[in-house]
Design a protein around this nucleic acid. Structure first.
Lengths: 202, 202
DNA sequence: GTCTATACTTCGATAGAC
DNA sequence: GTCTATCGAAGTATAGAC
């Protein structure tokens, strides 16, 4: 899509450049360590060991850089989820996908960013929808397989509960608040173990 | 940043000043409308119709301003939750407290901020713990009243599921993603209606 | 007690040098 | 195709005028 740039006067570096990747790496690192406000052209340049102006050579704007950082990670997450569910479409796998979700902090930053930037909001929304769709199919089939009718527990409700729980847990963990987490985790894993008995008994 | 400094040489305005409240109002508005990055002394001053330097007269740092904005809203939320549960300690009230939670966007911003600022993280954590504690007691009593044993559904697990769900829903709503929301909401309200039949039948 | 004039830093972005 | 010199705007914060 579109680097097409109906755009006017400025020259932009190739997307295959090694330097460009370094900048995206540095931006991602900064975002995770210090939040999106720390992702400035100067600091990204410094972290990458490069001149800050290079950020503006490879990206038309800071927003473009954010989008690149987001897409890279998002594509990774989607691919990982798809791969996991392709071989094993179970509740346990779904739970693992949600619980292991790398960088919940990452998501928080982008949701916060999405409030401000229209283009980022659109991208995050698109990702959220795709991620949901991938999981929803698996959830529906899993529940049906366990004889749980959709009118008793709608698959999308189960999925939203699962997603919500894992997000709250990781969000609180980042704050240093973990009271009750073990109990909540045990509740879910017990539930899954009952529906899908583990192969190796403890 | 870390201007820690129990500080020396600068004069700070009184906390009862009308001007001060105007600045906090403006900051809160900006935070909700455009995200925390938009909360700068210049923009806060402009929104309040005042000189930007006044922000630094009434607050030792921008972090102090953020803390003030957060506390004001947090205290309001805690008081509202306490009041609601004092008169009516039911699942339905708990659900309402979570679902109605004003400004989920607000929470997002502060959680994102908490990643960066230690003082803010501490304050947000303290708030999260108090909010949880207030609800947990009510949840435990409600479940017990409905004959649901704590070893079958630990109250804290129920609460985390509830909180997680409402947070994910409002977060997604902010993104413009609402697929499945109605089903999830219906699932929970039906569940509550079954345990606590509504007084006025539809 | 309240506010302003001012200092200095860092920001995103571009035009032009290699 | 790649990078740098440089600009004007915006950031936080302080010292000092009312």
């Amino acid at each position: 899509m579109g680097v097409a740039s109906t755009a006017p006067g400025r020259r932009i570096g190739t997307t295959t450049s090694k330097t460009r990747s370094l900048l995206v790496d540095a931006a991602e690192q900064l975002l995770l360590d210090e939040g999106y406000a720390a992702v400035t052209s100067r600091r990204v340049g410094a972290k990458a060991g490069l001149k800050p102006q290079l950020v503006h050579y490879y990206f038309r704007s800071m927003e473009d850089l954010f989008l690149e950082v987001f897409r890279r990670r998002a594509d990774e997450n989607l691919a990982r989820a798809e791969a996991a569910l392709a071989t094993d479409e179970t509740l346990r796998t779904l739970w693992r996908i949600n619980a292991d979700l790398r960088g919940a902090a990452f998501n928080i930053e982008f949701v916060a960013l999405a409030n401000h930037h229209k283009a980022i909001r659109a991208e995050v929304a698109r990702y959220a929808e795709r991620f949901r769709a991938i999981q929803l199919e698996a959830m529906a089939r899993s529940l049906a397989g366990h004889g749980i009718a959709a009118d008793r527990l709608p698959p999308v409700a189960a999925l939203l509960l699962m997603t919500g729980l894992t997000q709250v847990l990781s969000l609180e963990r980042a704050l240093g608040v973990t009271a009750g987490h073990d109990e909540a985790l045990a509740f879910v894993t017990d539930l899954i173990d009952r529906l899908e008995p583990p192969v190796a008994p403890t």
